[in-house]
Design a binder for these strands. Sequence first.
DNA 1: AAGTGGTCTAGACCACGTG
DNA 2: ACGTGGTCTAGACCACTTT
Lengths: 242, 242
Amino acid sequence: MYRKVAADLRQAIADGAYGSGGRLPAEGELATRYGVSRGTVRQALAVLRADGLVTSRRGTRRVVLGTARVQSFGELLSFTRWARSIGEEPGGRVVEIIRSPADEVEREQLRLEPGAEVYRVLRVRTLSGVPVMVERTVYPEHIGALVEALDPHAVSHTVPLQEQGVLFTDAHHTIDLALADADDARLLGCLVGDPLLRERRRTTDPAGSPVEWSQDRYLPGTVAFTVHNSTAVTSLSRRTGI
Amino acid sequence: MYRKVAADLRQAIADGAYGSGGRLPAEGELATRYGVSRGTVRQALAVLRADGLVTSRRGTRRVVLGTARVQSFGELLSFTRWARSIGEEPGGRVVEIIRSPADEVEREQLRLEPGAEVYRVLRVRTLSGVPVMVERTVYPEHIGALVEALDPHAVSHTVPLQEQGVLFTDAHHTIDLALADADDARLLGCLVGDPLLRERRRTTDPAGSPVEWSQDRYLPGTVAFTVHNSTAVTSLSRRTGI
DNA sequence: AAGTGGTCTAGACCACGTG
DNA sequence: ACGTGGTCTAGACCACTTT
């Protein structure tokens, strides 16, 4: 129900029904209009708030901030879903898969016992055939085995993994800058030492168990990361270097 | 009340009372324990969820993901508050303030009428005296006038602005990579063309009016940006190019 | 003084995961 | 079958902004 209200309001905002900087109807009025309780309306508005579409402050009606299209969790996580959502044709090729004992960092990130083995996957990702990103993902053994069985030219890995019961629900990202190494340069067609935008990501399942630890390196100009935050919700933070 | 419950749970998690990967008590039990209703407990848990501290899924108890320290909105927005929160000594120096008519991009970002004037502030920021970031901020005329009146060596600009009634409540950030220009190189002590981590930010007040449009360029290795997202909450997104 | 969002309550039913 | 979190309701009081 609240999803329906949220979707409806989102559409109305996108259509400019309230204008940019305009004011939304009061919660009570929306409740009457949609035939739901005020609590449900508030739940819907919380979604829009988190997406940075509206402000909210005691004493005044909510104000429309913009119509920013926000990506779903899946689009953020999966290069494939993201590419399709922006109308690009994604591609991918597995360059290398190695199985070997986890080092200390990997054991900590994937919460593994000493002696545990991991799969390291090196993969190049393309948009319309042009290489834009190099992906280095480390999987725990039981998930890596599933990845190894996939077609090396499979466009998506996350989709078949989800179908096989590997759930991705929470991710923590770190964004900074890295310099291209020999592999990056060869796969992306740049020079060794060229700057790349780096995203490191640790993804967990609903039980809190890590399912992947990945490092993606993008050619400059192909992507930017955007974040919305407010006095109410903050999920981005700035950290001292690594 | 829900803030108190959230703070208490956050502390308990930080103390390892439930362990990493451990399970939280049921909502009903927490409600009884704190003498509040279940709704209030859920509000507290929503805060922890948004901070990436716990998962939540129908059918099972919440699971502890980690003890990640999340920054407040103020710390994210303000270099000064951020630096202090990590035990560094922030500094800053205004290099240049120019008042002139807004160009098209600035008019759009700050939602100004044609012919409106803006203040452009170029400022270098330091940690323990070492330059780490160059900040280029554009203010609408009425706010820029306040900034111009500040001490050029003032450590913080946001604090005095807040005290003068300029409220920062929502911010939209874009993170990518930029190459150092002559100003950057001179102020940061790097070479022209060296890669820098760039954050562009548009901040608005509770009424939705833009109060600043800023571009910050960090020396690599001094900062990284981190984000948490989940199937429930997404505020980060990936965009193409500029 | 009136209107608005922020918070809290007490209760209900449901969808889902686990035993 | 049971316990859990997800959703919804109806009502209440308060803090804040605007008129």
